[in-house]
Simulated scan of single mutants.
Amino acid sequence: ELNFSSDIDLIFTYPELGETTGKSQSAKSPLERGQGCVTNDEFFVKLCRKLLTALSANTEDGFVFRVDMDLRPYGEGGPLVMNFDAMESYYQIQGREWERYAWIKARIIAGDKAAGEKLLQQLKPFIYRRYLDYGVFESLREMKGKISLEVQRHGMQDNIKLGSGGIREIEFFGQIFQLIRGGVVPALQTRRIQDVLPILVEEGFIEKAVCEELLAGYVFLRNTEHRLQEYADMQTHQLPPDELGQACLAASMGFENWKAFSQTLFMHREKIHWHFNTLLELRNA
């Protein structure tokens, strides 16, 4: 679900420990063929560093993607790449709740895709528990509390992603059902929130009207996000504070003026926030 000026979150991994076969594959003797061999870890670290440089380097033609590697095991201080067994061990022993949310959206984008799918299968018990995991509610409240604190601290109430009734609340709404019931309802093991919400209706977890309001709000917010970021290719989710910026955004969204746009935006955000809070309150009841 990339937006117009999105960064990409990458996690590098490889199947197993071992060594490369060396540089001299045409050599006659095993000794010659072994020259220049390195461990798989050394090889993939070097390869991934080159890839990151190629993706994020700013040239006269711009750059390919902004790349964020902080979702990898141990975060910013962790190894750049890990083998499958090390990855599985990390998540089973040290994996944190927020990492489960992140892995819901994981997909294989390069390399040996069959091996990658095998890894995803290995990690499923971490992401989707085989029991009804109601502890997710508490972790979600904690994450949402931290986000809300940051929003207040930095004056980000007009942030359509992190603010009240923003994109993140819609994603959390769907993901909380995925993490609680995904292990026993395989249909919920899907990445797109636009697929998840109708499944929740089919399974009887939410009303159709709730699904329709959340989907309508999601589309409106995502379109707003695209328009914000298309302007000067800025990675932002903040509504413009100036009249010119407001007029441009309203016009790009098909509204005659800022007031008309703001009223529609407010309506969507109010509905989203109400549904999100209602979900959390139901668990408290």
Rank of each mutant, 00 (worst) to 15 (best):
I176G: 06
R130P: 04
Y231K: 14
Q189A: 10
P240R: 02
R227C: 09
L52T: 09
G111L: 05
D233P: 02
I272A: 02
T21F: 12
P240L: 07
D158F: 03
S89V: 02
Q175F: 12
I147N: 00
L279F: 07
T190A: 08
D158E: 14
L149H: 14
L179W: 08
R222V: 04
I272F: 02
G116S: 05
D195G: 04
E19S: 11
E243I: 05
F276P: 07
C248G: 01
R96M: 14
D195K: 13
Q238N: 09
T21G: 11
A27D: 07
L197Q: 09
A232N: 14
H154Y: 15
L244V: 06
R269D: 06
V185I: 15
L215A: 08
K105E: 05
L140W: 10
T59A: 04
F65H: 13
N277M: 12
V196S: 09
G18P: 12
F173V: 09
G34P: 04
A110V: 02
D233G: 06
R130V: 01
E203R: 15
G34A: 15
L214R: 06
G174E: 14
A260R: 13
A285D: 13
L80N: 03
F126P: 04
I199T: 14
E138V: 12
Q122I: 09
F266Y: 10
F137I: 13
V64Y: 10
T20S: 15
R72Y: 06
W103A: 08
L197Y: 11
T224K: 09
E16P: 00
G62W: 08
Q35N: 12
I167M: 14
V67F: 05
S6E: 02
C248K: 14
E213W: 00
S262W: 07
D242K: 02
Q194Y: 00
F177H: 15
F63C: 06
L17F: 01
A106G: 05
